[in-house]
Simulated scan of single mutants.
Amino acid sequence: MRLILLGPPGAGKGTQSARLVQEYGIPQLSTGDMLRAAVAAGTPVGLRAKAIMDAGNLVSDDVVIGIVADRIDQPDARKGFILDGFPRTIAQADALEAMLAGKGLKLDVVVELKVDQNKLIDRIVKRAEETKARGEPVRKDDDPEVFKTRLEAYRRDTAAIAPYYKERGRLIEIDGMRSIDEVWADIKKTVSPLDEVVASR
């Protein structure tokens, strides 16, 4: 099964991705991890990415798509994959569709964890306060100001992706404000039929 998990920072994508990996034996693909692995392996697209980064520039969409294309050809992704943190823009979503079509593949579903973003900020503030009260350092991602910046970037860029997939009939919205187990139950209900399709591929 080939799927994308969408949702703002703090929505629980990492937690649910880990469960999907364990339940269905498909890899979670993070663009950051894939980029580092391609550079370390010295693949053609990895070398290209390294040259761009060494020059202090951002890696272009076509390089990222090349890295995703290489990664999904690996044996562990044959049954499917979870894309996390990609695509972030409409241009990347279009490029991903085209790349998959070129391989005779398509995405099965896009799961969006819907959350109340104001409550997310409250949750992060509370978590930071509890961490400080225990005398522990607050993780960078749990710093309320850093979190607000990441949330703003999500609203600005990635939030346009959900309507893109909704128009194409691929988007499933799940209430991410409930308990981890309740969210998981809904995700499983959505993807289990896809797993049966995968088994017959």
Rank of each mutant, 00 (worst) to 15 (best):
Arg123Gln: 14
Arg127Leu: 12
Gly104Pro: 11
Gln117Val: 14
Ala95Tyr: 05
Val115Lys: 03
Asp108Gln: 02
Glu97Arg: 13
Phe147Ile: 01
Ala93Thr: 07
Leu107Ser: 05
Lys106Pro: 01
Pro144Arg: 02
Arg150Phe: 12
Thr149Ser: 13
Arg139Tyr: 04
Ala98Tyr: 01
Gln117Lys: 11
Leu113Val: 08
Lys126Val: 03
Val111Gln: 00
Asp108Phe: 04
Gln92Gly: 12
Gly135Asn: 06
Val146Pro: 03
Met99Ile: 10
Gly102Ala: 15
Thr131Pro: 05
Ala93Cys: 06
Leu100Met: 15
Glu136Leu: 14
Ala128Val: 08
Glu145Asn: 08
Asp142Ala: 09
Lys132Phe: 03
Val146Ile: 15
Lys103Tyr: 03
Val115Phe: 09
Leu107Cys: 05
Lys148Pro: 02
Glu112Trp: 03
Val111Trp: 05
Asp143Gln: 15
Val109His: 00
Lys114Leu: 08
Ala128Pro: 09
Asp116Met: 09
Lys132Cys: 01
Glu112Arg: 10
Arg134Gly: 03
Ala133Arg: 13
Lys119Asp: 12
Leu107Phe: 06
Lys106Arg: 15
Ile124Tyr: 03
Val111Asn: 01
Thr131Asp: 05
Asp116Pro: 12
Leu100Cys: 08
Lys148Thr: 04
Glu97Thr: 12
Asp142Gln: 07
Arg139Asp: 11
Arg127Tyr: 10
Leu105Cys: 04
Leu113Tyr: 13
Thr149Val: 10
Ala128Leu: 07
Thr131Asn: 09
Glu145Cys: 00
Leu107Val: 04
Asp116Lys: 14
Lys148Gln: 07
Lys132Gln: 11
Arg127Gly: 11
Leu105Pro: 03
Gly135Leu: 05
Leu151Asp: 11
Glu145Val: 10
Lys114Pro: 00
Pro144Glu: 01
Ile124Ser: 05
Met99Phe: 13
Lys148Ala: 10
Val110Ile: 12
Lys140Glu: 15
Lys106Glu: 14
Leu120Pro: 03
Asp142Tyr: 10
Leu105Ser: 04
Leu105Ala: 08
Leu151Asn: 10
Lys119Met: 13
Lys148Leu: 01
Ala98Met: 07
Ala133His: 09
Asp122Pro: 00
Leu151His: 09
Arg127Cys: 10
Lys126Met: 06
Pro137Leu: 05
Asp108Thr: 01
Asn118Tyr: 09
Gly135Ile: 08
Arg134Asp: 11
Gly102Ile: 06
Lys114Arg: 13
Ala133Thr: 12
Gly102Ser: 14
